[in-house]
Amino acid sequence: MILKQEKGKIIIKIDKIEENEIRNKLQEYINKGLKEIVENNQVILDLGDLGLNESEFKSILKIFNSFSLPIDIIRNTNPITKMISINYGIPVDAPSVINTQNKLIPQTTVNNDKNSSIGSDSKLGNKIVENTLNQDILIYRRNIRSGSLLESEKTILVVGNVNSGAEVRSARNIIVLGKLMGTAHAGYPNNNSSIIFTLKLKNPIIKIANMVAEFDENEIKKQLQSKEISNILFYQDNNSIRMEIIKEQKE
């Protein structure tokens, strides 16, 4: 457990559910005067990407209650734990900042370079490789349901669908091995070298850093003269979001 103080905020970060350890540490901090600091600050409980079930969540709340420590906000990237937190009436979110919007024009590229991860005629080049290299990836292996927010500092790989009304938010990249029907916000809040890739999509909301793309699915399908679009890559270039359909080259 780590304690941090930012302007107006006390952040208590927990990275293991060890009830005794949490209790002992809190007692230690309280002995050092935590209560007095808490009075004039917002208390943020940072649970990182711990996936807590309801009883674990409750037991943590109980510990805080037993010390009469309030929790104002919970930080956690696991959608289920977030939902539990919301059910217990503790807010979990921070608002996003979007300044600009642009209309998407689809471009088709062919992946014919075995050494490149992206179509070689793509404007993106090898940016994604640099951007992701040596960075941890958060792998989420289920569908993300409406009302849930999956958030991480890491690149997020979703093996499943992002449903309409759900949001995935990463400080780096978002890769969806499934269907993107909700919101994907990569490069949050201001990393414009981030990318979003999805196998399939349906009326998604695409945000990269401080930009949101205007996505008109019908118009895009018309332009591409196809009913189904798949393997779609989004990235920022020249202050606008680009969309590429990556086609496998036929042998």
Binding site: E54, M83, I84, N87, S146, N163, S164, G165
Partner: peptide, 10 residues
């Protein structure tokens, strides 16, 4: 979908 997420959280 949202309700199912809530039920899962329970």
């Amino acid at each position: 979908d949202r309700v199912i997420a809530n039920l899962e959280a329970m």
